[in-house]
Nucleic acid binder design. Structure first.
Length: 753
DNA sequence: ATAGGGTTAG
């Protein structure tokens, strides 16, 4: 074999000196695989050899031969030496379609899309006619940069010339139109296509799902005579994305029954599905299959496995998988782990951090976070972004700040990516001011940067400011995306701006052609709910066909509670419990709603139903960071080393705030405890404990930041308001939905949350 | 085989 390779080298070398006749005579096909996999030219390390060939060719004048030129050009492109290719290309006296195409494809492959578009323009100006190879490279670029105009132009050109009607090219066009959000174009093209293959169908099935036309999409899917893995994956994932988790599961079972092949895509999708439905048994079966198929090394699959075990509360299993992964990448340390691998690893670490947070184990989250930073095989700047987002979600600002300092220390510029994640981190950790500093320091903001500051303002209840920013952004010609609209709508709902919210919701659909997703709908329901338009919510749910979404109903239910509409509340709760019979929050909300309105028997019935169905309550926890320690508090828990002190101080504090007008909101406690006991339960809510601890151990006058995994209760909210007034301290509480800034006895949420 | 290519995932 070695000999063959050697002789091949000589022959091809000769071939380039004496034009390319010898290659074809030598029986090129015999060495096909070598040509691609071990040919010295394809390997970029052999740049020198290619160079030699080039200079030899220049010396003996064979570069005058266009064929040889194209060959050498192709070698440069294959070995990714685009600068050399460009240089040679400029030297070629007469350039044909092939030469242009080779260069264009080279730039397309390394992702220099701007370059491709420029070359294509030049090519047209020189009057050179593109062929299907050229068009396909250019279309790929158009689709990556969403260049609708050019794509449409090419499409028209193809139709006029009518010669390149090839299914692959038309599929690219479909994709392009969908990426540019012109669904109608795609639909028309699909109908006009002479030949459609499975890929075409898959694209359209995915598109209909994304557009929210579930029926049409399912019809198309069912009518497909030959479904491949991608068809199944598309339908399962799409259903899941739109919140039809049960239907997605059903399709997954169909897929297995049909004996379809399962790919790594299937597993990573299926595992996400399993984690949201908390079906650990099925998850373990999938895990087994993954191992048997030997695809457990795939980054995506592993991350989904880690996440699945985290969500199901099996942190031990999750950490085991993470460990295995880490050993693997250490083994791969030489040669250096690739960027993609290191990203994959960090994403898994981050999901582990959020897994601990999700399970209320904040100390462990911090521990794993620390080892993540210490043990990371590769710390490149892109991985820092993931670390920051882990800080943001876990609400551990000190680490985020340290990471910020680290970036400064290594002298890296804060680019748009970093800036956006810092803004997100600071605002999610309760420091909107720091987020603003970063925003102001960043020049040339893009849509992501704008979105992060807009969402930051939204979380903190600064609705008007968020809207002002949004309009300013639009004024500067930046096109908002779906995430931006989530921010804007959240801002409207948290600030009670009903009219504005409706305006932006229709603007999103009509002006920017963005199909609303679950988050957008939830914001709208919140918005109506806050304004007390309960009947409008009913209509809204009906009009938009979103009655299968649990989150929507839950938001509806809290509005019913707030506006004390028990009738509607009961109806809504029934709807939720049909969808999710074991949702603890619903039972608690419903029973509290009865209790608030003195319907003790009804409340008791709900509680006992909850016990009968063995619904487990997610325990309320609060945490705060002091230096580099996270302190966690659970209601009534006395395991903290300073517990005695904390409880004693809390009792004293309660006495003092009572003097300035605070009183217990006993209505929210379970009715079956005596009033005195109820007071005891309330005053030991986790956020109160955290507050007491914070006051004892932090300097007076500094703001206090507390994180909570559930929604803050009315009584604690009240308590925080009075305490902020009494001690003249700013108290910032992040609950599951938003921030509450308590200052001088008021809260930024305006008592609606 | 001197030029290219489409759909699905965190």
């Amino acid at each position: 074999m070695k000999w063959i390779c050697m002789s091949f080298r000589c022959c091809s070398f000769a071939a380039f000196l004496k034009c390319n006749i010898i290659i074809s005579r030598f029986g090129f096909h015999r060495f096909q695989s070598h040509w691609y996999h071990s040919s010295p030219f394809v390997d970029s390390k052999n740049k020198r050899l290619v160079d030699t060939l080039h200079s030899q060719a220049v010396k003996n004048g064979s570069l005058l031969n266009l064929d040889v030129c194209n060959h050498v050009l192709n070698l440069y492109v294959k070995s990714k030496n685009l600068d050399l290719a460009q240089k040679l290309f400029d030297e070629i006296p007469v350039r044909d379609t092939q030469a242009w195409t080779i260069l264009i494809s080279g730039f397309a492959q390394i992702g220099s899309f701007g370059m491709v578009l420029n070359l294509f323009r030049e090519m047209q100006m020189e009057g050179i006619c593109p062929n299907q190879f050229t068009l396909s490279s250019v279309l790929k670029c158009c689709s990556s940069v969403s260049n609708f105009q050019l794509g449409k132009g090419i499409h028209g050109w193809i139709l006029r010339n009518g010669i390149y009607r090839d299914v692959v090219l038309e599929n690219s066009m479909l994709d392009l139109y969908l990426k540019c959000r012109v669904f109608e174009y795609a639909k028309t093209l699909f109908e006009l296509m002479e030949k459609r293959d499975t890929v075409s169908w898959n694209i359209m099935i995915g598109a209909y799902l994304q557009a929210g036309d579930m029926e049409k999409s399912l019809d198309m899917f069912r009518s497909l005579p030959r479904k491949d893995v991608v068809s199944w994956n598309t339908i399962i994932d799409g259903l899941m994305q739109k919140g039809y988790e049960r239907n997605a599961l059903e399709q997954l079972y169909h897929m297995v029954e049909n004996g379809s092949e399962l790919s790594k895509f299937t597993f990573s999708i299926a595992l996400v599905l399993v984690s949201s439905l908390l079906l650990m048994q099925l998850g373990r079966q999938l895990h087994g299959r993954v191992v048997r198929l030997g695809i457990h090394n795939d980054g995506f699959v592993r991350t989904s496995l880690v996440e699945m075990y985290c969500k199901c509360g099996r942190m031990d299993k999750a950490s085991l998988i993470l460990r295995e992964m880490h050993v693997d990448s250490l083994r791969k340390k030489f040669p250096k782990v690739s960027w993609k691998e290191s990203m994959t690893e960090i994403i898994s670490w981050s999901s582990m951090v959020s897994g601990y947070v999700w399970n209320g184990k904040y100390e462990d989250a911090l521990k794993i976070f620390r080892s993540m930073v210490l043990e990371l095989v590769v710390v490149d700047i892109t991985s820092v972004t993931s670390i920051i987002s882990a800080c943001a979600n876990a609400g551990i600002m000190e680490f985020g700040r340290q990471t910020h300092a680290y970036v400064h220390k290594i002298g890296h510029k804060i680019d748009l990516h970093l800036a956006s994640s810092f803004i997100d981190m600071y605002s999610k950790c309760g420091c909107l001011n720091d987020a603003w500093v970063i925003f102001r320091q960043t020049s040339d903001p893009n849509v992501v940067l704008w979105t992060s500051i807009i969402s930051g303002c939204a979380f903190h209840g600064q609705g008007k400011e968020a809207i002002r920013l949004f309009e300013q952004m639009r004024y500067q010609g930046i096109i908002p995306n779906e995430v931006t609209f989530v921010g804007v709508l959240t801002a409207c709902s948290h600030a009670g701006l009903l009219k504005e919210g409706c305006k932006y919701f229709s603007m999103m659909k009509e002006v920017y052609h963005i199909e609303p997703g679950i988050e957008h709908y939830t914001c709208m329901v919140d918005l109506y709910g806050r304004a007390g338009c309960l009947n409008e919510i009913k209509e809204f749910i009906h009009e938009n066909g979103i009655s299968h979404l649990c989150v929507i109903w839950k938001s509806f239910l809290s509005s019913c509670r707030l506006h004390k509409n028990i009738e509607m509340g009961k109806w809504v709760a029934d709807n939720i419990l049909q969808l999710e019979p074991s949702d603890a929050g619903t039972y608690i909300l419903l029973s509290n709603m009865y209790a608030t309105n003195h319907k003790w028997e009804e409340a008791a019935r709900v509680r006992s139903l909850m016990r009968k169905r063995e619904v487990k309550k997610h325990p309320g926890q609060s945490w705060m960071q002091l230096k580099d320690q996270v302190h966690t508090f659970v209601m009534g828990d006395r395991s903290h080393p300073q517990a005695m002190e904390i409880y004693a101080y809390l009792d004293k504090l309660i006495g003092r705030v009572k003097e300035i007008g605070y009183s217990f909101d006993v209505k929210l406690v379970m009715h079956d405890v005596e009033e005195e006991q109820g007071q005891v339960l309330l005053c030991h809510h986790s956020e109160k404990l955290a507050l007491a601890y914070a006051i004892i151990y932090t300097a007076s006058g500094t703001p206090i930041r507390i994180m909570k995994n559930l929604r803050i209760c009315t009584d604690c909210h009240n308590f925080m308001k009075y305490t902020s007034q009494l001690l003249e301290r700013e108290i910032i509480v992040r609950d599951i939905h938003r921030f509450h800034h308590f200052k001088h006895g008021c809260c930024s949420c305006g008592d609606y949350w």
